[in-house]
Design a protein around this nucleic acid. Sequence first.
RNA 1: CUGCCCGUAGCUCAAUCGGAUAGAGCACCAGCCUUCUAAGCUGGGGGUUAUAGGUUCGAUUCCUAUCGGGCAGGCCA
Length: 552
Amino acid sequence: MKDIISNLLLQAAQTLVSDTSQLSIMLERPKSAEHGDFACNLAMMLAKPLRQNPRAIAEQLVAALPPSEVIAKVEIAGAGFINFYLADTTKQLIVKQILEAGSQFGHNSTGEGEKVQVEFVSANPTGPLHVGHGRGAAVGDCLARLLAANGWDVTREFYYNDAGAQIDNLTKSVLARAQGLATDDPSFPENGYHGEYIADIAKAYLAKETVSADDIEVTASGDLANTESIRNFSVAYLRHEQDLDLRAFQIQFDVFSLESALYSSGKVEETVQALIESGKTYESEDALWLKTTDYDDDKDRVMRKKEGGYTYFVPDVTYHLEKWNRGFTKVINEQGADHHSTITRVRAGLQALDVGIPEGWPNYVLHQMVTVMRGGEEVKLSKRAGSYVTLRDLIEEVGCDATRFFLAARRADSQLIFDIDLARAQTNDNPVYYIQYAHARICSVLSQWGGDVAQLASRDLSALSAPSEATLMQKLSEFPEVVKNAANELAPHMVANYLKECASDLHSYYNDTKFLVDDEATKLARMALISATQQVLKNGLDLLGLSAPSKM
RNA sequence: CUGCCCGUAGCUCAAUCGGAUAGAGCACCAGCCUUCUAAGCUGGGGGUUAUAGGUUCGAUUCCUAUCGGGCAGGCCA
């Protein structure tokens, strides 16, 4: 529809401007229905080059507009906006389109089947997932769903930092617990993990339990002298715990990558050699440095420490080189903003390797901190102190759908306050239920009608002319744009906002109009409209990974 | 001190590429169930978009400065 109107405007513009090739016709959805169904600011854009009053230009444009059946009325308003009012029959087309496209409505083929990887969560295997990981999980999963809806071939990936100093720390903590040390014991590891789950791991280790995660299975030796065994068991144990967390959150990954594998395969060493050969490194103070200042960093960064180990960003560079070699020309990393300093380093490393990776690759979506409130007080999230709200606790208290919605419905780059009491106490006022309720209401009406939904697409829709119906149809027609924009902006929250609006229009319609009326043609047209709305709500809820219940 | 993110109604948050009278929910006030699910709807009050400048037909949006909050600036991740 946008294309049709743009085309009309372009033809009109040709009568005023000799060269229309540089002209971009921008059509927007006015916020207010008084301003029509589409509005165009072309006259204002042309005001300067033509040195004329925008309203005068608008009048000339409108006069030159070729006649079209799809448009009922064109008006000039405000500073020079050209407002288009669609004919009723044009508005009604969307209902048919939705019913015919079904679950594919709103999807497009922008990605052309190309590979894209979304890496998200990527928590260290040093504890259960907490709310911050939950935000990453909700946002990352929605991004993946959005990209898939835009025609991309999506791979969801989780990267485990299972090789660094934090893992040594974990191993020491488990050992200390297994030896019966309390966390406040002077000989407990200084930066050890204090959470009770460490004691659980120690107990399981001593009991020689077996745990499995992804493709590995580890049985504890129970031998306290064998730190390698403690380490492997602890990591596997926590990976298993995280798997359970993710399952409770209904999130699935296609690939789990391990930092340790990059070391054992020699890939890290290869990267370091390649970087040395690139001439972008130097030795100083017994350490090896990368000249990241050549790539917009404030200072150079250490690659190899005095003790000989590599700093965390070195395997990160290796990992991303692997991603590139695996054919992902588009990669999106969803992570907490507290790790934003790695972006410059990873990109610097990749550029220094000079293997043809574009400068801005990979893409990052950073989410800000989540503050958890309980009983009017902030719950501090400290893994080492061990007092924090786990994702699984949250899901149990608030529910999976509500938790996902809360965490994905806000812009990633603003801080989020998650009030547990509020989320739990106001379960019924939760926006996710508002949306799902709209869906359930439609299901209920359709089932009471009892007719054949599949036949609705071919029904005569001319009875749909009331304002509440026009509003709803207009909203439905926006869905494909929302899917496209949200993917372009990597902003899943736009889907959540849209769904709230769509549900609101449905609820208004529901209260304002009786659907199951005696007049057959009117009834069928209304069945078609609410059935189309049901489909859009379902498709939208699906993008957020939420259920679309038929009964509530 | 330096870099990044944020600052919108009492609270939690929106606002598409710079567009028209800045919108929802919660809370507050007044209405709507004999009628398809009241987990709903309708109406009302509530704002100098942190502050001061700048860019232009037009700024919540872009630029500069200031204030406030968060994060980072470890040879931790």
